Simulated assay, not measured.
Amino acid sequence: MADQTQPWAERTVEVAPQPGVGVPPQRDAFRRGVASVGQPRTPRTEQFPAVDQGGHDRVWSGDVSAPRRPLSWHLSQLRMGGEWSAAGALFAFVCWGIWAISGRGNLGAPVLTFVLSLLVAVGLFALSRLLGRVILERQMGRIRRSARGAHVVTAVFLVGLGVAYLQQTEWVVSAWNWVTGN
């Protein structure tokens, strides 16, 4: 028996070498200092059996391996490409400002018009995201990593909106006609 006065961490037990027990044989592709990556793994989850309306068991065909992502991940994905929408909104705001100031009247109706236009742009963004989900993810099986496409669509709408505001401003139209020679 070992001396009990030594701390337990310093006690050792010596075992005589046993025949047939040693270093386990290495895999044939083993190389010292090189990590083995890219090896196929077995899935961690199994497919869940589901019961259809007739009472028969069938295997659920949904994507079991896709993890649920937190809300912060979805919000950061929506922010990617936001500079396009911001640039379009800035252009629309400047053009709206020129149109609203040129009207020389009460700004209540022009402000309401601009707010409603921005709400339409938000709805267009949501529709673009929905169509992207249906077409790209569901139909084509692709993964969307950002919202750049929806932001570009929204920016194009907002730039068109700004141009429409400028076309309703008389002095901008006459200046444009003077520059182009029409």
Rank of each mutant, 00 (worst) to 15 (best):
P19S: 08
G62D: 12
G38N: 09
G105Y: 02
V172K: 01
D28V: 09
L127I: 08
S117C: 09
A29P: 08
T12N: 12
R27E: 08
A155D: 00
Q39I: 10
R142M: 10
V163Y: 00
V134A: 11
E83K: 07
L116K: 13
R31K: 09
T45Y: 07
G181Y: 00
P40W: 13
L119G: 10
V153P: 01
L78C: 05
L158V: 03
T154C: 08
V111A: 13
P19K: 14
G82N: 02
P40E: 08
V51R: 13
S65T: 10
T12F: 08
M140R: 14
A92Y: 03
Y165K: 05
N182G: 15
N177D: 14
P43Y: 00
E14D: 07
S36T: 14
V64L: 11
P49I: 12
R104G: 03
A92T: 01
V122S: 09
Q77A: 14
S72F: 12
F30Q: 07
A175V: 02
V122M: 06
G103L: 05
R68M: 09
R133P: 00
T169A: 01
W178A: 13
Q53E: 09
D63G: 04
F157E: 01
H151W: 03
M1E: 11
L107G: 10
R145D: 15
G88Q: 02
Q6T: 10
W84N: 06
A66C: 08
L75G: 01
M140G: 02
M140H: 12
A147S: 15
P25Y: 00
R11F: 12
R27W: 01
S61M: 13
L127F: 06
T154I: 02
G181Q: 03
E170H: 12
F30H: 12
V34D: 07
A92L: 04
F93E: 13
G149P: 03
R145P: 11
G97W: 05
S72Y: 10
S117D: 11
G81S: 04
D63Q: 05
L136T: 07
G22E: 05
W84G: 04
P19G: 07
E46L: 14
E14V: 14
A155I: 02
R69C: 06
P49N: 10
W99P: 00
R44S: 15
E46T: 15
Q6F: 07
G81N: 02
D28F: 00
G38H: 06
G54Y: 09
P67H: 09
G160L: 03
R41T: 13
L131M: 12
G54L: 10
A92R: 04
R133E: 05
T113L: 13
L119P: 01
A100R: 01
A109S: 10
V15M: 13
V13W: 07
V159A: 14
A109R: 15
Q6G: 08
A50S: 10
L130R: 15
T180A: 11
P49A: 13
R79C: 10
D3Q: 05
D63N: 08
P67S: 08
Q4W: 12
G55Q: 08
F114M: 13
G88A: 03
W73R: 12
Q26T: 12
I98A: 05
S36D: 14
H56C: 14
R44D: 15
V51Q: 13
G54I: 05
A87C: 05
L158H: 01
W176H: 07
